[in-house]
């Protein structure tokens, strides 16, 4: 059953029609890839799902609940997590604080909780810090945990962006090019982690230009072109489709299907 259903989303900026009745479905417990040429509307679609952009038309249903029209923090409450294509970190805060800010159900983030439930939240902080450190371990960022994120390299910032999404214990995560700017070995490691999380029941919708990642790790792939979802199928089906070559890969048919 689809955990996320995007139905007929249209969006135009001024005269530019960026999304044209885009629809897709993500099955629970899968890694679903979203590909398409630059500017085809992938990021806009993801932002619309997360309530960062208001669609002109269309609805988004998550776990049977209509989430289109909700503010992003409500969508977070519903169990979704989101990571930006271009990292939007808190640059004066440490890597650790960036992750901790993403955690769910914190006692100490409310005004009264912070003041009157100190013992509770201090214990929770220690637990959450250890959880954050596990994520940072995967991302190779433990040595930088107490550095301000403004001091990090571009790729490291991207990693923190992904780390924040993992930190919030979501049911489903929307990732916008998680491996972009990340070195190949680490990119692969991240995808292996995502697959392990999928095996535990998490669902992912991932925009990715690195085809080899999707071919290895995705259960299903959608392709967008000019604001429309034009193609979908298993990686094998998609890669054998001539439309996929014509609009996305190019002339050469030499993309290897690994594994």
């Amino acid at each position: 059953m689809a955990i996320l259903a995007v139905e007929g989303i249209s969006k135009s900026f001024g005269g530019l029609q960026v999304l044209q009745s885009a629809s897709l479905e993500v099955a629970e417990g899968t890694i679903t890839g979203l590909v398409g040429p630059n500017g085809s509307g992938k990021t806009t679609l993801l932002n619309t799902i997360y309530g960062l952009i208001k669609p002109d038309e269309g609805t988004v249903i998550f776990r049977g609940q209509k989430i289109s029209g909700l503010a992003p923090y409500r969508i977070y409450d519903a169990g979704l997590a989101f990571s930006f294509q271009l990292p939007r970190l808190f640059f004066q805060l440490t890597v650790l604080d960036n992750l901790l800010l993403a955690a769910r159900n914190q006692v100490g983030t409310s005004f009264s909780g912070a003041l009157f439930r100190r013992r509770r939240w201090r214990r929770q902080e220690a637990e959450l810090a250890r959880k954050a450190l596990q994520i940072l371990e995967l991302l190779g960022l433990v040595p930088l945990a107490l550095h301000a994120t403004g001091e990090l390299s571009g790729g490291q910032r991207k990693l923190v962006e992904i780390g924040r999404a993992l930190m919030s214990d979501p049911v489903m995560i929307l990732l916008d090019e998680p491996a972009a700017g990340v070195n190949p070995v680490l990119g692969r490691k991240i995808y292996q982690k995502l697959r392990a999380l999928r095996d535990q029941g998490l669902t992912f919708l991932i925009i990715e230009h690195k085809l080899e990642m999707l071919l290895d790790f995705a259960d299903r792939i959608y392709m967008m072109d000019a604001g429309q979802v034009v193609l979908s199928g298993t990686p094998k089906e998609v890669i054998e489709n001539p439309v996929f070559y014509a609009t996305y890969v190019g002339e050469t048919k030499n993309v290897t299907f690994p594994g």
Binding site: P72, L89, Q92, T109, S168
Partner: peptide, 20 residues
């Protein structure tokens, strides 16, 4: 943690919104 959210808002309030 409350103060952390305030500082986060200072840096990027949209990102805070995305983090719930």
């Amino acid at each position: 943690p409350y103060g952390r959210v305030l500082r986060g808002i200072r840096e990027d309030d949209v990102a805070v919104q995305v983090l719930g």
